[in-house]
Amino acid sequence: MNEERLIQGLKKSDKEAFERFFYEYAPRIGSIAKSYLGTDDVDDIVQEVFIHVLKGIKRFRGESKLSTWLYRIIINVCNDFLKKRKRHREELVDFGDEEEPPYFEPASNTDVVKEVLEELSMDAMNRIMKKLSPSDRLLITMRDVDGLSYEEMANILGVPIGTVKSRLHYARGKLRKLLQGKDGAK
C-alpha cells in the first residue's frame, strides 16, 4: 500500500489502512513526542495525534508529504500539552531512571558508542537532554535522529531554511558544550 492509497484508505475509514497507519507511524509519533516533551509517558499524546489525524485526513489535499503534515500535528499537540502543563504545573513522569536499557543497532562506530555509554550513565544522559529546551531537542531529533532535510524542517516549522540552520547550529552547539561537560552537565 503506497502513501496515496494509504491516505485514500484513511479518508474512507478503511480498517486495514487505519491499522497500517497506526503500526507504521505510532513509533515515530511516540519518539518525537518523547524527545520534544522530555517525558516517557506519551501514550495520551500519541492518542491525541491519531484523533487529530483521523479528524483532519479528509481535508488533507496532499500538497505536502504525509510525514510533514503529521510532524506539524505532533508539534501542535505537544505545544498544547506544554501550555497545559505550564498552566496546571502538572507533574510528569520525566525521563526515568528505571527505564530498560536502550537497544541500538551495532554500527561502525560501536567503540565510540560503547565508550560514551560507559562514560555517561542513563541519568547523566537524561540530565543533559533536560538541559536543552523542547525546541532544541526537537531540532536535533528532526535533523540528527530522523534525518529530515533542511527544506522539510523549514516546511514543518513554517520558517525560512536559514532560520532552521541557525537554530540547529545553536542547539547543536549547546549539546556539544554539555557533552564536553562545559555546562555543568557532569
Partner: peptide, 24 residues
C-alpha cells in the same frame, strides 16, 4: 568531538524509541 556527538545521538535515538501498546 564529532564521533562523540554522533555516538550520543545514536544512544539518544535508542533512548526515545517508542513501542505502541495494544491497549493504545
Amino acid at each position: 568531538e564529532v564521533e562523540r556527538y554522533r555516538a550520543f545521538i545514536k544512544i539518544y535515538a535508542a533512548r526515545i524509541t517508542y513501542r505502541p501498546s495494544e491497549r493504545l
